[in-house]
Simulated scan of single mutants.
Amino acid sequence: MTQTLTRSYNSYETARSVVEALEAEGVSSADISVVGRHASVDDSNAGEGAGIGAALGGAAGLLAGIGMIAIPGIGPVVAAGWLAATAAGAVAGGAAGGLIGAFTSAGHSEEDANYYAETVRRGGTVVSVRTADEDVPAVQAILDGATPINRDERLAEYRAGGWSRFDETAAPYRPPVV
């Protein structure tokens, strides 16, 4: 049996280091996905995704194939892997669900899928790994070793601000000015 393990991080750079650690541990690039925001994406055209992997630090493995896609409700993101392909396919085909559908088809609950999509919308980066049951402890150790966002605390923060679910028709997220 396989499981899908997913964590969200505040920065693309942290997520990148997680992907590199997973690959160094022997996890196949085909079983890793990353979807998130990177500062260079906000200033780029989502159609310019080809070859961005090297520019974002992906010398080999999954990160070498990273590109940009535009996701409704989020805007342009850097993405690679099976999760990104599912979301991009839904977007290109006009199918409902996009990123939410990609997360739920990977086995996540609707609540978790909405949380992960909203986290990407608000500037975070998500790493998902498909792994055999016997490899779960090692993969969890890598994912959790990089201090992922505390899901429950972040959900409480989102809800305190009036959020209830990811809305792909929403305008791009702009953090409140403090």
Rank of each mutant, 00 (worst) to 15 (best):
T104V: 09
P176T: 10
S28A: 14
S8H: 02
Y115P: 06
A113R: 01
A54T: 14
D167Q: 07
G73M: 00
E153G: 12
I100S: 04
N150H: 11
G75V: 07
H38Y: 03
A146Y: 15
Y173D: 09
T169M: 07
Y9P: 03
V34G: 07
D135K: 13
A84L: 00
E23L: 07
G161L: 01
Y158D: 04
A117M: 02
A95W: 05
A30C: 00
L99P: 08
R154N: 08
G89V: 05
V127G: 05
A138E: 10
G107N: 06
S40E: 08
A170K: 05
D152W: 05
I100K: 03
V129Q: 01
A92F: 08
A113G: 06
L143I: 00
T169A: 11
A95M: 09
Y9K: 10
V34T: 09
E110F: 10
A46F: 13
G94I: 07
A106T: 03
G94M: 05
T86Y: 09
A90K: 08
A132V: 11
V27M: 12
S11R: 06
R122E: 08
T125S: 09
Q140M: 13
Y116R: 08
T86D: 14
T131P: 00
T4N: 15
D43R: 13
E48F: 12
I149F: 07
D144N: 15
A88M: 04
G73K: 00
G81C: 00
I32C: 04
A21I: 09
R154V: 00
A84F: 00
R121W: 01
G93T: 02
I32S: 03
G65P: 03
T131V: 15
A132S: 13
N114F: 02
T147I: 01
S17K: 15
D144A: 13
G36S: 01
G57C: 12
V127Y: 06
V19L: 09
I149E: 12
V78T: 11
G57R: 04
E118L: 05
G65Q: 08
I52E: 06
T14V: 10
S33F: 08
F166P: 01
S17N: 14
E168M: 11
Y12S: 07
S33A: 15
A70Y: 07
P76F: 07
V19C: 08
E110T: 13
T131R: 03
L63A: 08
R165D: 10
V136P: 08
F103Y: 15
T131A: 12
A15H: 04
L5Y: 03
A106P: 03
P175E: 10
G81T: 05
E110A: 14
F103N: 00
I69L: 12
V35A: 04
A70S: 15
V178G: 13
P72K: 03
S44Q: 12
D152V: 11
T131Q: 01
D144P: 06
P76T: 13
D135H: 11
I66M: 15
E134R: 13
L56H: 01
G61E: 06
Y9F: 15
D152G: 09
D144E: 15
L83S: 07
G101F: 03
A113W: 05
G98K: 09
V18D: 10
E168V: 09
I52R: 15
S17G: 06
G57T: 11
V91P: 02
Y116E: 01
R130E: 14
A80W: 00
A85C: 04
S33M: 12
G162C: 05
Y173F: 15
